[in-house]
């Protein structure tokens, strides 16, 4: 662990929890957008490796990644969360956090839809 200025070791939560209930996992949903941020896949499990390879092609939602890998979304979320924690995958923050989407997001959706007509 990297020592931090205050003297206490910075322990990532997934180390503490053994990979369960990590913060990154809780923020993931079907439409979280992901891409690969590291190419090295040595030492990764085969499923995780396939996910990184898929993500190397560009950005996709978690739901799309799951379909392309032939895995349930719940399983894919676990893999994505682990890869976010290991720095292999970058994930966007939710555009509409639970509850209230921002007026800007709604306006942009509306403009985009109107442009389709």
């Amino acid at each position: 662990m990297t020592p931090v200025p205050g003297g206490r070791a910075l322990v990532r939560s997934h180390v503490v929890t053994g990979g369960r209930g990590t913060p990154s996992r809780n923020t993931l949903d079907h439409v979280t957008l992901i891409t690969a941020s590291r190419e090295d896949v040595e030492g990764l499990e085969p499923e995780t490796r396939r996910l990184v390879r898929l993500c190397l092609g560009g950005w996709l939602s978690v739901a799309e990644a799951a379909v392309h890998l032939g895995l349930p979304v719940s399983v894919t979320k676990v893999l994505v969360a682990d890869l976010v924690d290991s720095g292999h995958v970058t994930a966007t923050a939710p555009a509409a956090p639970a509850g209230a989407p921002s007026p800007q997001l709604l306006k942009d959706v509306l403009d985009g839809l109107r442009a389709l007509l």
């Binding site: 949903d29 898929l54 996709l60």
Partner: peptide, 22 residues
């Protein structure tokens, strides 16, 4: 790509960073 995928991924345009769900 080496490992088989169930389908051909259609990646998003590279500047897209927000996803809305309905």
């Amino acid at each position: 790509m080496g490992s088989a995928l169930s389908s051909d991924p259609a990646y998003l345009p590279p500047t897209v960073r927000r996803a809305a769900k309905i």
